[in-house]
Design a protein around this nucleic acid. Structure first.
Lengths: 351, 351
DNA sequence: CTGTTAGCGCGTTCAC
DNA sequence: GTGAACGCGCTAACAG
C-alpha cells in the first residue's frame, strides 16, 4: 500500500520512468538497506542475496539516483571546475590533468565557465556551491578573496594560476617571472641585444610578472630597457598584430621579440608576414604557453611551456586531500621548460 | 528538540556549515513552507513575512540546497553536455551557443568529455543520467543508437553533429557534403584542375561525407577522380603533415589541396613550408571548420565555416523544448559559409 | 549478515 | 495567506 499515492506530483509531462532502489529490493526479495549495502560495498552481503540483487538490477536496468544519494550522504562526489572558457586550448591540458586525478579518486568534475568576467565567475561559483559540490578548482579566477570566503562556506577550494592571500584556500601559482626570464635569456644567448616585448594586459598579475621577467633579464644582462620597445598585445592574436605593427612603425631597430603569450605571437608573426619579413631570418620571436598549435605554426614557435597537465593533477590532488580532510601535499610541480623550435635563431654576425 | 540528534553522521572531517531553509524560517518566525513559497514565487506571501524572510536569508547568507530541491521536484534544472574534449577550440563556439540559450531558460549546463572514445562516452552519459540531468546534448557522439535508447530512459536527448536513426532523439546534423562541395568548387572556379584531398578517418561519417563532396564535385565538373590524389590526414596536424608529404612524394602534379579539416590543413602547410613551397603561390589550400586560429595562420586559411554557435543554440532550444514537453522547433540553421582568405589563389595562367 | 527506522533539505498537498 | 505533515530515493544507525 505504500505504493499508492506516490508520485502524485509528477514533473511536467515527462515520464520519469526511472526505477528505484526500493523496486530493486522488492524484486530481489530483500530490504532496501541490503541493496544499498551491496551497492556501496561497505558491508558483506550473502552470496545468494548478492545474486538476487544483481539479477534484479540487471533486469530492471537500475541506475542509482545520485541526487538522492547526495542528499543522504551529504557528499556529491563531484568537484566543480571553474574555467574561463570551457573550450580553450590553453586550459585543455590542465583540464585533462584534473579529470585524470579526479576519476582515479572516484570524483567527477563538472565544468563551468566564467568567461573572463568577475560577475559571471561569482555566479557560477555560487551555483556550484548550491549544487553542493564537494570541492572547487578555480582556473585563473579573478574573484576577490572576500567574495571567495563569503561563498566558499567550508567548501574546499584550490586556485590554479593565481596566488590567494586567503589562508582558507590552497593556491597553485605559475612562475610567470622565471618563464619570462628564460625566454629573454634564450634570445640574449643567441646574440640578440635589441629585444622588443609584446605585453599582456597590465591589469593581470601574470602579465605584470612576465613584464618584470623581461625587464629584469634585460637589465641583468647589462642591456638597456627601452619603453618604446614594448607594446601591449592583450594576450590575443589581433592585439599581437597591432602591437607588432606599432613596434615596427616606431622605427627603432630590434632583432627579436618576446611575446607574452603564444596567441599574441601568432598575431605578431602575421604582421611580419604581411610586411614580407621572415621569421627567424629577419626577426626571432618567442612565445609563452606553448599552445598545442605552436608546434605547427610557420615556423614552429619557440615558447615557454608550463606544465599544465601536471598542475592540473596537483590541483585535483589538493582538492581531494582537502575534501577528505587531509593536508594537501606540498606542490611539487615540474619546472617550466623553454621549448626551442624554429622561430628563434642566432643574430646574424653583421647585425 | 528536533535539533538534537541531527547530523549525527557528518561527512568526514569537513564542517558542513551550510544553513537550511528551516533555519531561515525559524529566524524569520515563519514556517518552512512560507519560505519555500517565497523562494519559488508560486504563491503570494504577505509583505511583512517577505521582509522577515529576506532579512533572514541575508543575515544567514542562505543558499538553497539544489540537491535537496532536485530530489523534491524531480528536476535538477541542468542539462548535461557531452563533448569530446572539454577544451577544444572546435567545440568552443557550439558550447557558447548552448550556454547562452540554457542560461536564458534558467538551466545550467554541466560538461563532460568523452575523449573520442565510445566506452568513455557511455560511462559519462550514464553518469549524467544518474545525476538526473533533465536533458542531454551530445556533441559528435559516437554511441550506438541501441545504447542510447538503453541509457536515455526517458531523458530528452539531442545530438549535435550526427544523424541518429532513433526516433527518440532529436538530431541536428552538419551538412558536411555540401560544405565539401563548396570548398572544391571554389578551387575549381579558381582554375584548379588537379586537386588533392587530405581526408579524415573514414570510420567517421562526417569524414566520409566530406570525401563524397570532394569526389562528386570533381566528377560533376568533368574532372577525373584519382585515388592517388587522396591521402588520410586523420583530422590532426601530424596527419596533415604526413598526408601532404605522401601526396607530394607520389610525384603526381596538383595545384591545390582540400583538407578535410583545418588542423590537417595546418599540418599540410607545415609540410610545404619545410619543402620551401609557398602557399598560395605554389599551392592553394582550403580547410574545413574555420577554427578561430585560421584567421591567423600564415597565410590565413580559406575554410568552410559551420555555424557552430547557431547550432549550439538550436540544440539547446531543442532540449529545453523536449524537457518542457513541447515539440522541438524545426531546425532553421544558418547556411554553411566558405570563408575565402589568402591560402587560395587563381591557378597561374601557365600552369 | 539483515530488516526496521529515521533523516538528509526541500516542495507540496491538505486543512485551516 | 499560512502551517503541519508527508514524500522524493537513498544511507546509516539501531537492534537483532
Amino acid at each position: 500500500m505504500s505504493r499508492q499515492g506516490k508520485r502524485y506530483h509528477q514533473a511536467m509531462s515527462i515520464e520519469n520512468n526511472s526505477i528505484t532502489l526500493e523496486e530493486v529490493a522488492r524484486l530481489a526479495g530483500v530490504s532496501t538497506s541490503t541493496v544499498s549495502r551491496y551497492l556501496s560495498g561497505t558491508h558483506v552481503v550473502s552470496e545468494e542475496k548478492v545474486a538476487a540483487i544483481e539479477g534484479s538490477i540487471k533486469r530492471l536496468n537500475y541506475r542509482p539516483n545520485l541526487v538522492a544519494r547526495g542528499l543522504a550522504t551529504g557528499r556529491t562526489m563531484t568537484v566543480g571546475v571553474l574555467t574561463q572558457e570551457v573550450s580553450n586550448s590553453f586550459f585543455n591540458e590542465a583540464v585533462r590533468g584534473v579529470e585524470d586525478v579526479l576519476a582515479s579518486h572516484n570524483y567527477e568534475a563538472i565544468f563551468v565557465s566564467g568567461h573572463w568576467n568577475k560577475v559571471e565567475e561569482e555566479r557560477r561559483l555560487m551555483s556550484l556551491v548550491g549544487r553542493r559540490v564537494d570541492g572547487v578548482i578555480l582556473l585563473l579566477a579573478d574573484l576577490d578573496d572576500t567574495l571567495m570566503d563569503r561563498h566558499a562556506q567550508g567548501v574546499p577550494m584550490v586556485f590554479l594560476g593565481r596566488q590567494s592571500a586567503s589562508t582558507r584556500v590552497h593556491s597553485l601559482g605559475f612562475d610567470h617571472y622565471t618563464g619570462a626570464c628564460e625566454a629573454v635569456r634564450h634570445l640574449i644567448e643567441l646574440g640578440h641585444r635589441k629585444i622588443a616585448f609584446i605585453a599582456g594586459a597590465q591589469d593581470r598579475l601574470d602579465a605584470v610578472e612576465r613584464w618584470r621577467g623581461y625587464h629584469d633579464t634585460l637589465v641583468a644582462a647589462g642591456l638597456p630597457f627601452d619603453e618604446r620597445l614594448v607594446a601591449n598585445g592583450g594576450y590575443v592574436e589581433t592585439g599581437g598584430v597591432t602591437a607588432m605593427n606599432t613596434l615596427l612603425d616606431r622605427g627603432l631597430p630590434f632583432t627579436a621579440v618576446f611575446a607574452a603569450n603564444d596567441d599574441s605571437a601568432y598575431g605578431a608573426m602575421l604582421a611580419m608576414y604581411r610586411r614580407g619579413m621572415s621569421v627567424p631570418d629577419d626577426m626571432s620571436i618567442v612565445g609563452y604557453d606553448d599552445l598545442p598549435h605552436s608546434s605547427f605554426s610557420l615556423p614552429p614557435l619557440t615558447s615557454v611551456r608550463q606544465p599544465l597537465r601536471d598542475l592540473g593533477r596537483e590541483a585535483a590532488s589538493a582538492v581531494v586531500a582537502l575534501i577528505e580532510g587531509h593536508k594537501p601535499p606540498r606542490a611539487t610541480v615540474a619546472k617550466l621548460e623553454l621549448i626551442v623550435r624554429e622561430s628563434t635563431k642566432a643574430v646574424p654576425l653583421g647585425g
